[in-house]
Design a protein around this nucleic acid. Sequence first.
DNA 1: CGCGATATTGATATAGATCAACTAATGTGG
DNA 2: CCACATTAGTTGATCTATATCAATATCGCG
Lengths: 241, 241
Amino acid sequence: MLTDNFLKGRRRREMSAEERAALESVMGDPVTLPRRRIVARRDEVVAQSTFLVSGFMCRYMDSLDGQRQLVSIQTSGDFVDLHGYPLQRLDHDVATLSECVVAYAPHDKLTELIEAFPHLGRLLWFSTMVDAAMHREWIFRLGRLDAVGRVAHMLSETYCRLHSVGLVKNHSFDWPLTQQDLGEACGLTGVHVNRTLRVLREAGMAEVSDHVVTVLDYDRLASAGEFDSDYLYLNDHTRTP
Amino acid sequence: MLTDNFLKGRRRREMSAEERAALESVMGDPVTLPRRRIVARRDEVVAQSTFLVSGFMCRYMDSLDGQRQLVSIQTSGDFVDLHGYPLQRLDHDVATLSECVVAYAPHDKLTELIEAFPHLGRLLWFSTMVDAAMHREWIFRLGRLDAVGRVAHMLSETYCRLHSVGLVKNHSFDWPLTQQDLGEACGLTGVHVNRTLRVLREAGMAEVSDHVVTVLDYDRLASAGEFDSDYLYLNDHTRTP
DNA sequence: CGCGATATTGATATAGATCAACTAATGTGG
DNA sequence: CCACATTAGTTGATCTATATCAATATCGCG
């Protein structure tokens, strides 16, 4: 089903078959989007939210001089702009990083869904709160870690998230971001990301090549990024990669 | 009433008298907390959330070498750790910055409240999504603004938030944070915050003295911080300070 | 084959950190 | 009420991580 990866591997995922069917029923047909496509713009009034079935998307904000700051990266199973449901209008832009399959959930149907299944409503709320927890971790990363720490933290986070939905094979996962993109997520220039990745590679922690990340030594990578996956609210089974 | 400032000045505040009374009824008696008191700790399982009636609180995370990063500042009318309701356990610490009056809302009562008043449930969700929008703006601030921009943005944000709940008088508001605290919010050292505040003061944009911030030229301050209050989701009446 | 995008490396510049000293305010115990 | 300790703020000198600028290399693709 389209929503198979929704909250997969997370604590509190307990969702009845009935609830899952109800959630699935509010989704429109799946749509394939090309890479680097803007999906929603800041200030836009939104009447539906995007569920990411597969691929990578991001949310970002641009500064006046055109510098871009990613504020989140979304992967398979994420309800990308569910934030737009209570907020009604977006405070950031949303775009694809790779080719993506998405399904749209109209907000009026979400309202019906939540009134019929209050517990499912709390799960949806929960999923947006995990996003907020990731935001907080990004604030910490930008405010208190140096370049090596930031990149190590970013890679550790992505590794754990993708592991929880079964998208890590042989310690590797697809990674459609350029070094420039990674810099825009970590508050660094593309050039410095390049040098930082070399440090991680030469230390035998992780390497990125050909749009695939391979985590060579998770413990040391996580340690370099002061990373602890607690804030992802994964369940015991998927928590340790 | 205790919750008078909840969502005050925000879009979508529409709350019926019945809803407001119901919200008020889940709050315990108000409690006064001293300044610099830790209220909740990371990893703690939480069974109640803290509503901030008056004063300043913060949420923060410490790095391994003891460096602190504030991830949010909470002011009167904020449901400080409502995030803990869907999440059940916290990913950060919570403390007071000034003497505070708070009221606690037990989570089991919140569940009853939301099932009885689904619309009120969406308002609570909305309030946590405004927090998430602020998190995103903090990510942008740390990732893309220089020291002057970060501090200008922080002061602009606080000015608008306090204005919306009526706590700005004569372009001034109480500000219990030290320069060190402000640095911990902006990813700067206390020393550099000092120099940065001097720049803002000498430019005639804002000054901080004796724990009071006075905004001398809001337009230039906001401009220096690339600040646009959209993400606070204020209504038309309170939006322009 | 050639062109735009991406990655890599080197040289130099700079914003902010760090270290250090001093001042001003605030509080506390004798 | 004063002596002294503690905390917060201020300023200067120096250091360093990362930005910036520049050049070259590589790769996928029309």
